[in-house]
Design a protein around this nucleic acid. Structure first.
Lengths: 219, 219
DNA sequence: GTCTATAACCTGATAGAC
DNA sequence: GTCTATCAGGTTATAGAC
């Protein structure tokens, strides 16, 4: 194995450990010592591969975003498929990601609040705003053609992510109060899924009393 | 002013400062120095009034819970009022609390995950589990009588809090991407409110396709 | 009651030996 | 590349003067 390969290999090992710790405990509460101990090297070793804690974090965060966001964008743009089907697939994608990392929703929301500008910066570097615009344009086209009801985009966002993320954010709490074990939690998640899809499709297809006092340029 | 009054007064001042800092930055990221500086006394002074940082935090947390939870419980138990009205009042109560403290939802969820057992302990000390049981009994009675549709309680919880809390959790993010200023955010919140009420009443009163594969003792 | 001084420890980061 | 030693700064908490 060449020196470069050893280097890459160690870099990957560090990233893996850092990712798991950052997700579990957040940026501030994760120390370089924690990560070093987890990888099996010394604190200064980390600084050799990633000069600062910040740079390590950026790498981890980018990795996480790339693992889900493009997938969701692609699903949402498939205009030929019924919206209920697309939503269900989006929910499935998030479910499978979150079930592997139950702390991920918490992590992302915390990060959103700790440092928005960094998040926006990372997203821009990955050209996600451009891709997002394509998605919203696509949805608005469907709305304009009457295929979907006109709903302000932030409301779609709140509806989907609120319903999707709340069970994970409160997993510990709900489990300790209502449920006996983790298996029950997964069963509950599966029973919850159709509610999410139904609420979203209702919002996007059925006529509901609507308050037009709030209008925005973005829908 | 007696010595005891001076003592109580300083205790209150400390609690107020601690509350605002804990909510804004969380438990771990708030230092005793921060609080001391905010109150205008020295670090060791804090330890005189609250022996440890933990004890101070418990006092703050208890204060927050008492400011909202009993109110919500009372509203939900008013069986004579239409459910839509009750839900709207609950949303109003949370809105007015969260608009004063936009970081409160984040704070509570973080705390839920940092230390569930402490949360449960505090709740028990305040006899909230007993009061909660009365509320759920009341709702289940309405369900049994056909006044409300039978919905698993955790699903009601997810629906209400997911829709209610998501705008606040993502306020910084959404504001920096979609909106120009804070005023717009409040306008959006007000436009969002009827959606929450409608989604909840739909869930609780309309017939929807339903998956009965998940049944629990608590519904 | 409130202060200064300090204990004991943890943090991220770097310099330099090997 | 990986180590030891160390820096400069932060943390909670306490002892003891006044």
């Amino acid at each position: 194995m060449s020196a470069a390969e050893i280097h890459d290999n160690m870099e990957a090992r560090i990233l893996k450990a850092a990712k798991s710790l950052f997700i579990e405990k957040g940026f501030e509460e994760t120390s370089m010592s924690d990560i070093a101990a987890n990888v099996g090297i010394n604190r200064p070793g980390l600084h050799y591969y990633f000069r600062t804690k910040d740079k390590m974090f950026h790498a981890v965060f980018e990795d996480i975003i790339l693992s889900i966001v493009p997938k969701v964008f692609t699903i949402l743009m498939q205009q030929e498929r019924p919206i209920a089907q697309r939503i269900e697939e989006v929910v499935n994608a998030y479910y499978s990601l979150f079930l592997q990392n139950p702390n991920l929703p918490m992590f992302i929301i915390r990060e959103m609040n700790r440092d928005v500008s960094q998040l926006v910066e990372t997203a821009t570097r990955l050209h996600l705003p451009d891709r997002l615009k394509e998605v919203t344009d696509s949805l608005q086209e469907e709305m304009a053609h009457g295929k979907l009801r006109r709903v302000p985009l932030p409301f779609l966002f709140y509806n989907l992510y609120g319903l999707l993320v709340m069970p994970f954010l409160t997993q510990n709490f709900v489990t300790s109060i209502y449920l006996d074990n983790e298996k029950t939690f997964v069963e509950m998640l599966n029973a919850w899924k159709p509610y999410i899809v139904l609420q979203m499709t209702t919002l996007l297809t059925c006529d509901m009393p609507r308050d037009d006092s709030f209008s925005t340029p973005f829908l």
